[in-house]
Write a protein that binds this DNA or RNA. Sequence first.
DNA 1: CCATGTCATGTAACCGATTACAGGAAGCCG
DNA 2: CGGCTTCCTGTAATCGGTTACATGACATGG
Lengths: 348, 348
Amino acid sequence: MKAATIRDVAERAGVSVASVSRVLTGAGVVAEPTRSKVLEAVEALSYVPHSGARSLSTSRTDVIGVILPDLFGEFFSELIRGMDVACRAQGRHLIVSSSHDDAANAAAAIRSMRGRVDGLIVLSPHLDSGELTSSLSGRLPVLLMNGGDLDGQQPSMAVDNTGGARVAVEHLFSLGRRRIAHVGGPTGNLEARQRKQGYLDAVASAGAQPMLAQGEFTQASGFAAAARLLASDQRPDAIFAGNDAMAVGVLLAIQEAGLRCPEDIAVVGFDDVPIAELVRPGLTTLHIDIAGMGRRAVERLLTEIDDAAANSPQAANDAAREIIVPRLVVRQSCGASTSTQGFSGERP
Amino acid sequence: MKAATIRDVAERAGVSVASVSRVLTGAGVVAEPTRSKVLEAVEALSYVPHSGARSLSTSRTDVIGVILPDLFGEFFSELIRGMDVACRAQGRHLIVSSSHDDAANAAAAIRSMRGRVDGLIVLSPHLDSGELTSSLSGRLPVLLMNGGDLDGQQPSMAVDNTGGARVAVEHLFSLGRRRIAHVGGPTGNLEARQRKQGYLDAVASAGAQPMLAQGEFTQASGFAAAARLLASDQRPDAIFAGNDAMAVGVLLAIQEAGLRCPEDIAVVGFDDVPIAELVRPGLTTLHIDIAGMGRRAVERLLTEIDDAAANSPQAANDAAREIIVPRLVVRQSCGASTSTQGFSGERP
DNA sequence: CCATGTCATGTAACCGATTACAGGAAGCCG
DNA sequence: CGGCTTCCTGTAATCGGTTACATGACATGG
């Protein structure tokens, strides 16, 4: 049995295909008896419009695509969740393509999505992807997240990594720490660079000396980097890690070295992944509302798509960079509060 | 500037649309000079076939849908990653819809996907979703994951929760533990029930008494449940938790109670989420190759789709239930190995 | 009573691909 | 050179929606 078409529905309801279409799309007016006859027929045949045919005549797909790099588990799922919620609310669908670790890979994914989505959200921690995207996009609306945005013309969103890092380091200074070290992420990663820059700014403002160690955004690399720092003759009294995974590695290294956190060395991370509040001591870190970011990204892309469809010239208005400001979450690892809190890590 | 169509390409290349189509789809034969002229024109116009038009004439979308409940971060992202890899390898796309916590919600998502996907993968921890799916699916190929599969006719995949739990508990018995308790997941959850059943089986085989506590698959609930168990007059010497999140809560409760793991109480979890090897002591747990499961699910769905397209009667062959057998990963928390391992938690 | 406007509905063109079938060029053989 | 393949290419029908425009019914006002 073939699937029912709009003509089958029209025939069964005793009306024309135009009326059926009007009822289903909500466009135009239909008299009440017609409407109910149509709905009845739709129900009886369990008719579902053929999305391809619809997209052919409307030249919209009602689908938006997301291109993702290889991401940490929690970040990925939170982001998708937020996007999904926003899409569902707008009657859109989400098509994802993940694990694009290099630019060429991402480019291929973008190409394969063209023609099947109304717009794209591209997460690109690679510096060169700004140009890459614009060169590939043709006239497909694109929203860049956490990327370079080299030309400043693409609509984009990004976390204020520099500012967040500065806040973290200033917080440590305000608690009396003086020898504050930084464990940075991979050099090729834009976010890693920005966080390092924020650290350097804050240290410079305080008139202190920077102490740097290189990591890879992984727990193991944080452990190794911290081990190097602890062995140096000028041992730091605080470590600001480029992300939470490395911060947890730092905590373990401190523990393994027989030192105490926060008494001997304070630690601050970045991202506020769920594990941050579960480790002991609880990790002070910068919180980002990841799901909210995802939701916001979808909303912005949709207005961009609408603008493009309307050919409106004020599209330039939307071509702004939106900044997400992370919020410092103070737990035990920074030493600000010495009270030992009981376990209360409810996780939904 | 409108997007180029196949006719634009044909005109520029000086050939017919049929030839262009043949080059792009790979169907039929084309002479070499024609092929290269076409590819050149495609390149010049940066032509991308209109997926809607294509799906209209081929009645395929090359997209598969995934319906997901609210999942834990790591599980979700690993699963999607595996599916995504498999899809890409087969030239398919993945459309996701997550956070469907109840059956009605999932049903709505399934309906909204009909007509825009070639098949569906439905993750449903709800007991009633087997019928739900079959009633909604019409003639859309569906693969059920971790669901009830009440009628046994749907192709499906599931983890051997019962068997895995039994292995875990038997392992504890083999280490000399005798008073083994279980912290179970929510009663409405099928997987929670199966794991509990495996625990009960193993305990019965050993002629021991079951000790049960109720949790919610969250870390906090595991903490609370363990606290209750530790306060009882017959304190257990081992706790098998229904998943890793609860197991971590159990570890914290033991620590907070001034007891030692594994010396006083051994702990075993289920799932082997990344955090399992990072907590101290390292958590002994049952490993599931989540990404592999996702990949396999896509592959099975694709063969199901092919069978449906070919109208082949041996489709019944595929309507089997495939079982994923979890593997016990022994770390420190069960007390099997007393050697303290250094930190080596490399995480890609 | 006729001209005119309003409103609901129907007819048919169109979106952009695929592909069955027709047709033409070239090659081969007798 | 004629007839027959063989091989490639082009024409046009088709998929299932949407929607501009035509149509017809009915009400209203002069």
